[in-house]
Every structure is written in C-alpha cells, then in structure tokens.
C-alpha cells in the first residue's frame, strides 16, 4: 500500500522568501501549515499561531476519536434522543447535509459504518459478507440525521448511525483559520491542511494570485502519462488562486486486491461498494469546507456527477480524472482548469 497521505498540492510561486513567516502544527492526523506575508514578522507569527490555535479548537469539537468532542457526544447519545450542539457544529452539520444532497449522496458524513465494514478504518481491506454490508448500508445516509433548528439538536433515527467529518474537517478548520487571519489584519497568506486542502488569502507580494499545482499521480499509480523525471513531480495543472480555496481528493494512493478483484479505497456511499477505477478530483471555490465536500463527492460519485458538481454555487473550477482498469488513457473532464500539455 502506498503512503496514506501523498502530497497532493504544490506551491508553484513564490520561492523561498526571507520576508515570509511559516508556522505549522500537527492536528487532525495531518500537518497544517501557514505561510504569511507582511511587514512585521512578529505580528505575522502571532496571527499564524492564533489561526493554528483555532484549528486545534476545531479538532477538539469535531474529532471522531476524542471522547470529549461534540461529535463523540452525538455519536454516543443521538440514537437515544436529541443531543444539543453548539451553534458552530450545528451549522456545519446542516451544511454537510446540504452538500450531501447537492452531490446526490456521494459525499456523506455518515459513511463510517461502511468504511468499517470494508476494513478501511483498520487500513486492511476486506470484502464484507452480504449481511454485514446490508446492515452497514442501513445506517448510512444523511436522511438518518434529524435536525431541530429551534432547539439546535441532532438526533439519529436509528442506532448504529455515526457522524464522521474527516472529509470536510480539514477544510472547515482552514475556513475558520482564514477568518482569524483576516480578523488579525493579515492580507497575504497561504494555508493548507495535509496538502489536500488549501486556501489562498490575497496574493503573494507583487503577484496577481497564488499558483497552486496539482502533481501527476506517482509512478506507483501506473499511469502511462507519468514517465517524466522521477525527481520532479509533473504537474497536471497549475491553478491561480486569490481569496479562494482548492481541494483535491485522490483514490490512487490506497487500493487492495482480493481474489483477483482490485478495489480502490474510494467508497460510494450510495452503492456501499468501492469503485474499481482510480480517480483524482479537484474543486476550487470560495471556501474549503464546500470544496472538500464537493471534491469528495465527485471522487466517490465519478464522472456522472461532474456536471452537477461543476454547476454548484460553491464550485468555480473542477477537475475529474479517472483511470478505468485496462483503459489506455485516463478519462479527463475539466471545468475552467487548464491541463498541462503532458497530462492529456
């Protein structure tokens, strides 16, 4: 199996600049990094630290693994009755449910039972028996979440339902961090969480926009296109971003094979099964939360969802690449993302 977190995005510009301050912290099982430009390095560092502290607070609220998080409380108690949640978590859950509908259920925050059934959470793929699969499918779907806006409560309509915000948690944390930076008077910064979600605040000094590159899948992904210099990543596309977010999802890094059938770790919550083709998706738009959800939805839903995702109000640019088993070339759809020549 390949490393769980391949580098998905590269910063094309600018180069190493002594005027910039970089701060970083590990949170949500990944590394968050913020690059800030401005006049006073002491101030830039202070702002960056505040943003990182906000990311940690978001993790404390949303973590599936921390027993004292709001999400854990919901997962523990919501099948027995409504659970009161903070305004921030409530609005995030509502938004997630909305984005789930927008992606026809391909993005779904209740997918955890399915992931477990397929052994993805234990990083050991296995094909579940029909009964297990049916039981897990019965617990998946945002229709099982019951929201009460007046009382700000969440309830599950059956036991075994679970909320796991892994797909949008990083994006949400970045969106919150951006607010903190703006509040602190920062006008030029680049934030990313594990290189799969990035937000470009303003632009670097003297530039129109931050330029973010999506590298071609590594040679292990067995793409015929990727035959370049192994020391340098080849870019599929370079996307200019200014006050905008970019989320990338990829399902080439993890896969397993049982009895001759290859499975990716891309699970479609609607069918309950992993898809057979490797995929890479990217969505650029105004915010990381929505971008993460839409790119995750496109990854799971595949090409048939492309027009629907690309037409969403939170999507300004979109990219889909799929490598169907045995096909000589990848399927590529792009909406306002210009591909580098070698990628075609």
């Amino acid at each position: 199996m390949e490393p769980a977190s391949p580098q998905l995005l590269y910063r094309e510009t600018p180069g190493d600049d002594p005027g910039a301050v970089t701060v970083a912290r590990n949170a949500m099982a990944t590394r968050f990094e913020i690059l800030l430009y401005g006049e006073d390095p002491v101030r830039l560092r202070a702002a960056g630290e505040e943003a990182l502290a906000e990311i940690e607070r978001v993790e404390a609220r949303l973590s599936f693994y921390r027993p004292d998080s709001e999400i854990s409380r919901i997962n523990r108690d919501a099948s027995r009755g409504p659970v009161r949640v903070s305004a921030r978590v409530f609005h995030l859950l509502l938004r997630a449910a909305e984005l789930s509908r927008a992606s026809d259920g391909a993005f779904d925050i209740t997918v955890a039972p399915l992931l477990r059934t397929w052994g993805f959470t234990a990083r050991q793929g296995k094909v579940p028996c029909a009964a297990d699969l049916e039981q897990a499918l019965g617990r998946v779907g945002t229709r099982h979440l019951k929201f009460d806006e007046t009382k700000r409560t969440v309830a599950f309509d059956r036991s075994g339902v679970e909320i796991e915000l892994g797909a949008i948690g990083k994006g949400h944390a970045l969106d919150q961090a951006v607010e903190i930076l703006r509040e602190g008077g920062i006008s030029s910064a680049l934030l990313h969480g594990g290189t799969s979600a990035v937000y470009a605040l303003g632009a670097p000094p003297g530039e129109e926009a931050w330029k973010i590159a999506i590298p071609a899948p590594s040679s292990a992904a067995a793409t015929p296109e990727n035959t370049g210099d192994p020391g340098r990543p080849r870019f599929l596309a370079v996307i200019p971003l200014r006050d905008a977010a970019l989320s990338v999802s990829a399902g080439w890094g993890k896969w397993f094979e049982i009895e001759g059938t290859a499975y990716t770790h891309i699970l479609d919550p609607r069918t309950g099964s992993p898809v057979s083709e490797r995929r890479l998706t990217a969505v650029a738009g105004p915010g990381c939360t929505d971008g993460d959800a839409l790119s995750t939805g496109l990854l799971a839903g595949g090409l048939s969802l492309f027009d629907r995702i690309a037409g969403h109000a939170s999507c300004r640019r979109a990219l889909f690449m799929g490598w169907p088993p045995g096909a000589p070339k990848p399927t590529i759809r792009s909406h306002r993302i210009e591909m580098e020549s070698h990628a075609e």
Binding site: R43, A46, E49, G184
Partner: peptide, 14 residues
C-alpha cells in the same frame, strides 16, 4: 511552543 502574542489590524488593538 507558541509566542503567546496575538495579532490585530491596528497597533492600538494590538
């Protein structure tokens, strides 16, 4: 590992 300093848009607020 943090400076304990906080940022603000104006020097008065800072």
């Amino acid at each position: 590992k943090e400076s304990w300093r906080r940022a603000a848009p104006t020097s008065e607020r800072e």
